[in-house]
Each structure stands twice: as C-alpha cells, then as structure tokens.
Computed example of a mutant assay.
Amino acid sequence: MLTFEGQKIQGVEDITAKLTSLPFDKRRHVISTIDSQPSTLTGGIVVFVSGSLQLPGEEHHLRYSQMFHLVSTLEGNFFVQNDIFRLNYG
C-alpha cells in the first residue's frame, strides 16, 4: 500500500501507475535525515526519511517526509510492504 498526499493506493499495478504519472521525472532529491528501526517481522526494517525535492524551473525546494516498511523474503531480498509520502507545506 502507498499513501501519497493522503491518497491510499493498493496493489502493484495501481502503485506503479501512480508513481509513473507524477511529474517528478527530472527532480533532484536532497536527503536530510534517515532513521531506521528493526520491525517485529523477521528481518524487516522501518525507515523514515526527510529531505527536499528540487523540480526543474522551480526556485524553491519542496520539503517532504517519507516512511516505508521493508520486509525480507525467504530468499534474503526485501520488498516495500507500506510506503507513506507527504509534502511538508508551510
């Protein structure tokens, strides 16, 4: 599940469609902080990121916060179980 600016999107196809529709194809990320904690699931990790986005032609950066939950697979890989993204206005 992805929550993007309050909109809840579930399923691989719907999440992919949302992410590819965003006008951020030439943006620049500036990460300020990254915090992580092990989750109660075996080998899972909860990650919280804050930073800013610089969009082409825009003078001001857009501040954002993002939290996502990485879950491990039996093969030793990870997938994103949950992702919450929010622009921080003001």
Score class of each variant (00 low, 15 high):
1 M>V: 03
1 M>P: 02
2 L>T: 03
3 T>L: 07
3 T>Q: 11
3 T>K: 09
4 F>R: 10
4 F>H: 12
4 F>E: 03
5 E>Q: 15
6 G>P: 10
6 G>N: 14
7 Q>S: 14
7 Q>P: 03
8 K>F: 07
9 I>H: 04
10 Q>L: 05
10 Q>M: 06
10 Q>N: 10
11 G>C: 11
11 G>Q: 13
12 V>R: 15
12 V>F: 13
13 E>I: 05
14 D>S: 15
15 I>T: 12
15 I>H: 07
16 T>M: 05
17 A>Q: 12
17 A>F: 03
18 K>H: 12
21 S>L: 08
22 L>M: 14
23 P>A: 11
24 F>S: 03
24 F>G: 02
26 K>A: 15
26 K>P: 03
26 K>E: 15
27 R>A: 13
28 R>P: 00
29 H>D: 15
30 V>P: 00
31 I>Y: 11
35 D>I: 02
35 D>E: 14
36 S>T: 09
37 Q>S: 06
37 Q>P: 00
39 S>L: 14
40 T>D: 11
41 L>V: 10
41 L>R: 09
42 T>W: 05
43 G>V: 05
43 G>N: 13
43 G>H: 09
44 G>E: 07
44 G>M: 07
44 G>R: 07
45 I>L: 12
46 V>F: 03
46 V>L: 13
47 V>T: 09
48 F>R: 08
49 V>L: 05
49 V>Y: 00
49 V>K: 03
50 S>M: 05
51 G>W: 12
51 G>C: 08
53 L>N: 13
53 L>D: 13
54 Q>C: 02
54 Q>D: 08
55 L>P: 02
57 G>H: 14
58 E>G: 04
60 H>G: 00
60 H>V: 02
61 H>I: 04
62 L>M: 09
62 L>I: 14
62 L>K: 13
64 Y>Q: 07
64 Y>C: 06
64 Y>L: 11
65 S>N: 08
65 S>H: 08
66 Q>H: 01
68 F>V: 01
68 F>Q: 01
68 F>G: 00
68 F>P: 01
69 H>M: 01
70 L>E: 00
71 V>G: 01
71 V>T: 13
72 S>G: 12
73 T>Q: 13
74 L>V: 04
75 E>C: 04
75 E>F: 10
76 G>M: 10
76 G>H: 06
77 N>P: 01
77 N>F: 12
78 F>P: 02
78 F>H: 15
78 F>V: 06
78 F>D: 07
80 V>T: 13
80 V>Y: 00
81 Q>R: 11
82 N>A: 05
82 N>S: 07
83 D>G: 02
83 D>A: 04
83 D>W: 03
84 I>F: 08
85 F>L: 14
86 R>Y: 11
86 R>S: 12
87 L>P: 01
87 L>C: 05
87 L>V: 09
87 L>H: 11
88 N>H: 05
88 N>K: 09
88 N>I: 14
88 N>T: 06
89 Y>E: 11
90 G>S: 02
90 G>A: 03
